[in-house]
């Protein structure tokens, strides 16, 4: 009688414990809270995008782009030949970095237009070292990055205006690099160059 009672209690305890264990770690309410992460799905909208596309023509406060030179590469409708801000060594370094990320896949690292994507079948872009492009105004390159040209899509969502100008500055440096003699380099850079070559 008593013996059977002990067994029953033991078994009941065991079963209760297993049931308790099975209740752990089942709810994810804290992991997935009722708010949206970037690009998450939200079926409230017909396109299911939680991150709402900006209504065309929207201007954020303080972000009105009235500087035609900086944002359009034009002045009175004409492509500019100058840069909207001084081209410093930092700007050039930034331009080189951005060029290598966004442009070199097609234009290659020297700007002659034989990048990896071109090698894989993309229509080759013209070399930056053509006389026509050496003579093109700086605004032309800015305009192409901003609006695209031929087979090249625009990069206005991917590269900020200041970075586009930095890239233009670096393209100018690339153009110079292919026709410059060592003697034409400034003395300190010439020393640096020889130190690296040796």
């Amino acid at each position: 009688m008593v013996k059977g009672g002990v067994h029953r209690v033991t078994i009941a305890c065991g079963v209760a414990m297993l049931l308790l264990l099975s209740q752990t770690a089942c709810r994810q309410d804290m992991h997935d809270q009722p708010r949206y992460e970037p690009l998450e799905q939200n079926n409230f909208f017909s396109d299911a995008r939680a991150s709402r596309p900006v209504v065309p023509g929207t201007v954020a406060r303080g972000k009105l782009r009235i500087d035609e030179h900086l944002y359009e590469g034009r002045q009175d409708g004409e492509l500019v030949t100058t840069f909207p801000f001084p081209v410093t060594k930092e700007v050039m370094a930034r331009g080189r970095e951005r060029y290598d990320i966004f442009c070199s896949p097609c234009h290659d690292k020297t700007g002659s237009g034989g990048g990896m994507i071109v090698q894989r079948g993309f229509r080759p872009p013209p070399s930056f070292h053509l006389q026509r492009l050496k003579a093109s105004p700086a605004g032309h390159f800015y305009d192409v990055i901003t609006n695209g040209l031929g087979g090249m899509y625009d990069y206005k969502e991917r590269i900020k205006p200041e970075d586009r100008w930095a890239i233009v500055a670096y393209i100018r440096a690339l153009q110079l690099s292919q026709s410059l003699t060592v003697d034409e380099l400034p003395a300190d850079i010439r020393r640096e160059f020889f130190a690296k070559v040796k």
Partner: peptide
């Protein structure tokens, strides 16, 4: 804070021709 998942346009930048 978000690295960004590329939009379809980024894919098509190359895959419109490749």
């Amino acid at each position: 804070n978000f690295a960004g998942i590329p939009p379809t346009k980024t894919c098509m930048t190359c895959h419109s021709q490749i």
